Amino acid sequence: MKVKRKLKQRSKKEQRMARDVNHCISKKIVEKAQRHSSVIALENLNGLSKNKQKSKTVMKPQRQRLGRWSFFQLRQFIEYKAQMNGVPVVFVDPKYTSQECSSCGHIAKENRKTQDHFECVSCGLVANADYNASLNIRRRAIVS
């Protein structure tokens, strides 16, 4: 009985910590967008199936950690803080943002060499995969 109580206490502590981190992250994002008079662009991850979250490109321990992280909560915090501060939030289609070249627009699985390395097979652009995806999200937000 004692063990179950300890585990419950620990899970509540982890939830409070994650909530605090989400508040801090969302506050900084909204403050920066407000300071630069810009828009916040987020991928619309509604309906993301559990199968897609269990991608083979992510190691199992990392997959478990990311699966437990409260992205929806972070999104909610960003939305309400942005609304309070008059910062627009735009949601874009997440399809192929990590496989599309931000320079030439070529989409291929082969562009994503590793989890963090992007190299376009069409034009040869080499970049950090997350940075390349963020450029694609920005472009889609501007177009919409």
Results as ranks from 00 to 15, higher is better:
residue 57 T to F: 09
residue 89 V to I: 13
residue 37 S to N: 15
residue 77 F to C: 10
residue 61 P to V: 02
residue 85 N to Q: 15
residue 66 L to C: 03
residue 57 T to D: 11
residue 89 V to M: 12
residue 49 S to V: 02
residue 45 L to F: 05
residue 70 S to C: 04
residue 33 A to G: 09
residue 69 W to Q: 10
residue 39 V to P: 03
residue 23 H to A: 02
residue 39 V to G: 01
residue 44 N to P: 04
residue 60 K to Q: 04
residue 60 K to C: 00
residue 71 F to H: 12
residue 85 N to K: 15
residue 24 C to R: 13
residue 87 V to M: 07
residue 18 A to E: 02
residue 59 M to H: 13
residue 90 V to P: 09
residue 81 K to D: 08
residue 59 M to Y: 07
residue 64 Q to F: 03
residue 22 N to L: 03
residue 39 V to R: 08
residue 71 F to Y: 14
residue 20 D to K: 05
residue 39 V to W: 08
residue 35 R to A: 14
residue 76 Q to I: 02
residue 50 K to N: 12
residue 77 F to R: 02
residue 88 P to S: 14
residue 86 G to S: 06
residue 78 I to D: 02
residue 44 N to A: 11
residue 35 R to Y: 10
residue 42 L to Q: 03
residue 74 L to K: 04
residue 52 K to E: 13
residue 34 Q to D: 02
residue 33 A to T: 06
residue 74 L to A: 11
residue 67 G to F: 05
residue 53 Q to D: 01
residue 23 H to E: 08
residue 49 S to I: 01
residue 30 V to I: 05
residue 79 E to P: 00
residue 59 M to I: 01
residue 84 M to A: 12
residue 41 A to K: 06
residue 71 F to A: 04
residue 29 I to W: 04
residue 70 S to Y: 00
residue 59 M to L: 06
residue 86 G to M: 09
residue 22 N to G: 09
residue 27 K to M: 12
residue 29 I to T: 15
residue 26 S to L: 07
residue 36 H to N: 14
residue 82 A to M: 04
residue 22 N to T: 00
residue 66 L to N: 11
residue 62 Q to R: 09
residue 37 S to W: 07
residue 20 D to H: 10
residue 68 R to M: 06
residue 28 K to W: 11
residue 84 M to Y: 08
residue 73 Q to P: 01
residue 80 Y to R: 03
